[in-house]
Design a protein around this nucleic acid. Structure first.
Length: 140
DNA sequence: GCCAACGTTGGC
DNA sequence: GCCAACGTTGGC
């Protein structure tokens, strides 16, 4: 079981839209970066991820689950681009902001902080547990 | 709206 | 294969 983080611009695809898809889930399409794609290729159904809002919000707002392994991205004609399908699991009782993450020395090495432009990224088990606790979630 | 970081493109 | 120019992302 691995943990991940998915970034989204809420103007383009928000947590509420993801929740509205329910158990059907949604393709995490549109990624056009090889590093991000490679992380999606490593994902296995059942893996969990954080859903992060960029732009004005800049916070982790929910937990998602990978439903389907990487497959061709239906929004691209180029077969090199692949994506996974994810579904919303639950919102965070308390959002965890980028500001808090940056202020916490235990989270200083998070990809979110170190590689701010990477849109799909791994999260370590330690980071996952810590953020869940900051969010008021029992460890998942 | 600005700008730093960084990925991509295209000329050579 | 190098690198300058350019485009995009995302924090501020």
């Amino acid at each position: 079981m691995q943990y991940w983080l998915f970034k989204s611009e809420p103007d383009t695809w928000s947590w509420n839209q993801q929740v509205a898809r329910g158990p059907v889930g949604e393709e995490w399409s549109g990624v056009r970066n090889f590093q991000a794609r490679n992380f999606m290729r490593q994902m296995v159904p059942g893996d969990l991820g954080f859903f992060y809002h960029t732009q004005t919000e800049r916070a982790i707002v929910g937990v998602v689950e990978v439903m389907a392994p990487a497959h061709p991205d239906s929004t691209s004609d180029d077969p090199r681009w692949e994506c996974v399908d994810i579904k919303a699991v639950r919102p965070l009782p308390r959002k965890v902001t980028l500001e808090e993450i940056k202020a916490d020395p235990r989270l200083a090495d998070m990809a979110l902080v170190r590689f701010s432009r990477l849109s799909v990224q791994p999260v370590t088990a330690e980071e996952w547990t810590l953020i869940c606790s900051l969010a008021g979630l029992e460890s998942m």
